[in-house]
Nucleic acid binder design. Structure first.
Lengths: 350, 350
DNA sequence: GCTGGCACTCCCGGCTTGCGAGTGCCAATT
DNA sequence: AATTGGCACTCGCAAGCCGGGAGTGCCAGC
């Protein structure tokens, strides 16, 4: 056997060829043959030699041929090696950057709209699918609560958190309370809790409940309840997606059945969220190539993600989903920059 | 020419055969031949005779053959005739009705959630795509406004309408106001406007602005602004859809390109909304078959809609989108009942 | 007016064929 | 020992061909 196949790392030359192969394959999606590589690699090398090298690379698991006499195609391992060590990223064009800046730092948007814009931008620039998880707010603090009596035994409760988060919900009580009583309760709660973090509020409320079995039980319980909802719901109802239909243009997704399963996964959200959750701890851009994600609907698809932070605190993840043969050199920096800009944008309107 | 082809209405017998043909075609999607019809129509009639009748029906434009020696397939005109005069609807099963009842009249849901549930139910029961427009609220009345000072010159405004509609938004003011001043302003506005309809509020505010150029201009303007947003936004951000992926199971949508255009239209919302708007004036169930809709993305698809009302006032439209060859006899009553139940559910939690 | 018979048309699946692309191996060259 | 050209071979793919089946339109007879 040749030396190259004994080492587990491919030779210099093999790496160069692998890189040329992956780039070529990303460009036009066709298996790459030896002649093409010999011509385009830039190295003065004959097709036959290329074939020998390819045999080595195949043995090492970096490439494979769809059938006996087709060219070679990168395997997941091949892509992984490419992305990890061969890739040189290609910074976004000026227009792309200004486009991102202009849209994300325009300050008249609510956070919700901002996430949608971000998702749209990601999908628009990459022509793939953009995804942005809703930011989780960890240390929300109680600002103000308000009870508005509705007809009968129903009370509209409005809870304002931090600076701008507003939650509202209707309570169905077992009896009706006077407007005065409601106002007093609200005042009491606000006096007690304004400025405290929700975890503190929760603890105090529970304590208080245990000691003084006051008549405001029901409303206090609701307050706890709503607070908890804020904690969890923001993390749960998931993400904003855009440009799903872009994926329909790619040949690797031409079978309707695959598409259907994929779109169902998008609607389901659970699997995708779980995948994104894994990225929230990562430092920078993270990439799942093909089956690496562990979810079969994402076979032949890659996910490029980056966490985004507000005040050095990671609060969410965004990214792009596209075919495995995507232009990683373009996509990676775009995802990276977008994450930073989104963080900045969120901070500026916190 | 035979008599049947001179009248523009098909003969009794032709109608019976047409009905059998459409039902059969809806069942299994294959062009229906004369032998099959002769056997299954229940009329004692030979295939040859059926062929003669089919020739008449084809001449009249109710059926057509995909090619010389295939069976016949209903045309849009054929479906239309079937739906208008031949169809006998098939009331939903008891389980379906109870399912709808249980899910829609369970009273712990917010209106938003209710619409989503409805959409899910429609898609789940019909195995097609469910769609529900957001209800428009015409005569919302002012209940209460609240200004919460944030950092710097920003104020969080919360506007409560009717009984449960809560809008919130952040204002960027040119200078900072004291908490007291904000409270006074809110009180003033609430005293003036509580219980009034938004149109009245708007008129009064504009009047007042013209006469007394008070310092609360900015905030009053905002109040108007928000009120207007409620008017329009609710009608604009469209609809809730569910089960889009169900459409991917139908043979008539096996081409990815068609699917892509369809899903883009779903995301775009504009065309679909425009179509639904036409149904809001109709009394009961309305059906668009294939090209009747006028939107080419909906070719080969039918839309079955019904308006839903609260207090005898139509506030929205819901429906089902599926292949032209759908089981109209089942779908129509389901859409009908769902619209009524949704109306009732909305009323009960108004 | 209905019916059986019959020739005809067309789709569809399976099979074959030829071509092109690309490989693997080998022997010759450097 | 690495590189190279040559060559036989493999495979996928598109085109062409064929036969069967389903269904039609027409016609003549009842």
């Amino acid at each position: 056997m040749a030396a190259a196949s004994i080492d587990n790392a491919p030779s210099e030359r093999a790496q160069h060829l692998l890189r040329a192969l992956v780039e070529r394959y990303i460009r036009d999606g066709q298996p790459v043959g030896s002649r093409m590589l010999s011509r385009e690699s830039g190295m003065d090398i004959s097709p036959a030699t290329v074939r020998n090298v390819m045999a080595d690379l195949e043995e090492m698991g970096f490439v494979s041929s769809p059938h006996t006499s087709a060219g070679r195609v990168p395997t997941v391992k091949g892509y992984r090696f490419f992305v990890d060590t061969l890739l040189e990223v290609h910074p976004p064009s000026d227009e792309e950057i200004t486009q991102l800046r202009d849209r994300l730092l325009a300050d008249d948007d609510s956070p919700q709209v901002l996430l949608t814009s971000t998702s749209n931008l990601l999908s628009g620039i990459t022509r793939m699918t953009g995804i942005v998880t809703l930011p989780r707010h960890e240390n929300l603090s109680w600002r103000q609560i308000e009870f508005l009596p509705l007809s009968e035994n129903r009370v509209l409760t409005i809870l304002v958190l931090n600076q701008r988060e507003v939650q509202n919900r209707i309570l169905y009580l077992d009896r009706s309370y006077s407007a005065d009583f409601l106002r007093q309760t609200a005042n009491y709660l606000n006096d007690q809790f304004a400025g405290l973090s929700l975890t503190e509020v929760r603890d105090r409320l529970l304590n208080e409940l245990r000691e003084t079995r006051a008549s405001l039980n029901e409303m206090m319980l609701t307050a706890i309840n709503m607070a908890e909802q804020v904690f969890t719901s923001a993390g749960q109802d998931g993400y904003v997606m855009a440009g799903e239909t872009n994926l329909m243009n790619f040949a690797e997704l031409s079978e309707v059945e695959r598409l259907r399963r994929l779109f169902e996964a998008f609607n389901e959200k659970r699997d995708i969220l779980h995948l994104l959750d894994q990225c929230i701890s990562a430092e920078g851009v993270q990439i799942f190539i093909g089956e690496e994600s562990g979810y079969s609907v994402l076979d032949d698809l890659s996910v490029v993600t980056a966490p985004y932070s507000v005040d050095d605190r990671i609060v969410g993840v965004l990214g792009v989903i596209g075919p495995t043969r995507m232009a990683y050199d373009r996509v990676i920096p775009i995802v990276d920059i977008t994450a930073k800009l989104l963080g900045a944008a969120l901070k500026s309107r916190k």
